[in-house]
Amino acid sequence: MRKIVVPGELLSDKSPRGKDIIIENGKAYATVMGVYDDQKNSFVPLEGPWYPQSDDLVIGIVEEAKLTTSIVDMNSLYKGLLISKYSDTNMESGDIVEAIVRDVDETRTAVLQRPRKLFGGKIIDVKPTKVHRILGREDTMIRQIEQSTGATIKIGMNGRIWIKGGDVALASKAILQIEEEAHTSGLTERINKMLTEGKNNK
């Protein structure tokens, strides 16, 4: 059985693991809203912040560009830091950038590497907990949206998404629908249907 749980709700005695769970007196409790599956003893958070990890792809906006370093807004408590020795791209404030987290230090800074500038396009912010579902298993969901809409889409683990070209409106509509319905079954079919209908209505 899958059930929606709230902070403080008992999960099980055979504690699942995860950052969003606390153990007290041998019992596991959720700390954020999520879906608990008692057969798999798994917990998937529905709400909650993004905790950056090495190799996460992020989409950010350069807030402040200096000669040797640039500070990147990632819609997060964490700031991205681009150090020019890891990149030969010159940054300017206001640039949209796609980059990889190299490592994270205790001062809420994620050092970024391999930055690429993105030009133009639409930016939307979604809940970071829903990013995996938007990507789909082995990125199948997002490929499908790109194919159907002709848009190029970049998805940051920080929940920031960049869309350009093709039918941007349909692509962002599909993404927002996945965000809303991420915890349901049959989502792939519904999104496919919605994309087909959206195309035919043009």
């Binding site: 906006i61 807030e63 807004d73 819609n75 404030s93 206001g94 133009g120 396009g121 639409k122 930016i123």
Partner: peptide, 13 residues
């Protein structure tokens, strides 16, 4: 904020 302005640039597009 700068983020608002960058997001708003799509409106211009």
């Amino acid at each position: 904020t700068r983020v608002d302005m960058v997001k708003g640039a799509y409106i211009l597009e």
